[in-house]
Design a protein around this nucleic acid. Structure first.
Length: 261
DNA sequence: AATTATGTTGCTAT
DNA sequence: CATAGCAACATAAT
């Protein structure tokens, strides 16, 4: 279940495995996964370095781009023993096979013509990027202006900011020492600044912690690299109070009532 | 059996 | 018109 850091690591991996090669085959194993384009049209195409936009992984193939959204359980890995049934396989001319695995099959892929990419991204990745470009607290406040609800929920609005999901929103609030239930209109400039630093810190630290060929998600037994997410009952790393779990807009939030004001 | 899961979209109510 | 909350999507694990 990837957010911005996991997608960023995935894109770097795909770029390392595939760029400067040619496409031998794009095989569609699950017909429901590919939402647009003709997989036979990319055979022989030159592969340029994959990159991330919002939570999308974009892989340039000649004059088209293979866009992949991992959604909840998707991952892009190299073929090998013990792998689960793929939904999509990209085979390169050097024999490398990148597979799209996705247990819950909520993920999607599209083949998009270069000329249509801007329009596609405007629809599927409308929010502003919080990273790697350096943003400050005033930028974040402006990005979320008009919102009235809890700051944690606001941070997850992909039409305003890209890449911050349920984990990142909890982690950013904890790093900022801001209660996730606080309302957007009530936050002060120093709090906005700490929240923006919290978002950046969560992204940078999580990329560093999860760097590698395959990210093992928490549900599949992966190591938890987060401060509060998934740690209800544990001691807060900052003040020692017990981490609490609550539900906001139907999603789990983790926070420390001791030091998040 | 019921609950939970790191995402997005579309509907409805406000 | 914009925002907030919720169901739905599909599957597995506890």
């Amino acid at each position: 279940m990837p957010e911005l850091p996991e997608v960023e690591v995935t894109c770097r991996n795909v770029a390392r495995w595939t760029s400067a090669r040619r496409v031998r085959e794009l095989a569609v194993d699950d017909p429901a996964v590919l939402r647009s384009g003709d997989p036979t049209s990319v055979v022989g195409a030159n592969v340029a370095p994959a990159y991330r936009r919002a939570k999308l992984c974009l892989i340039p193939l000649g004059t088209q781009v293979l866009v992949v959204h991992l959604r909840m359980t998707g991952k892009l890995v190299r073929a090998g023993p013990g792998r689960r049934a793929p939904r999509l396989r990209l085979t390169l001319d050097d024999g490398c096979v990148v597979v799209f695995e996705d247990v819950r099959r909520l993920g999607q892929a599209w083949l998009v013509l270069d000329a249509e990419l801007p329009g596609f991204l405007a629809t599927h990745a409308p929010g502003a990027e919080p990273w790697p470009v350096v943003r400050d607290g005033e930028w974040l406040r402006a990005a979320l202006s008009g919102k009235r609800g809890p700051v944690k929920t606001a941070l997850m609005d992909g039409r305003r900011i890209s890449g911050v999901g349920n984990i990142g929103a909890s982690e950013a609030c904890w790093r900022a020492a801001v209660d996730p239930q606080r309302r957007v209109p009530d936050l002060s400039p120093p709090e906005w600044s700490r929240l923006m630093d919290g978002v950046r810190g969560w992204i940078g630290d999580t990329i560093a912690a999860e760097d590698g060929d395959e990210i093992v998600y928490l549900q599949h037994g992966g190591v938890n690299p987060f401060h509060v997410y998934g740690r209800a009952g544990a001691a807060c790393p900052r003040c020692g109070a017990a981490i609490a779990r609550l539900v906001q807009s139907g999603r789990a939030t983790f926070h420390c009532a001791g030091c998040q004001a």
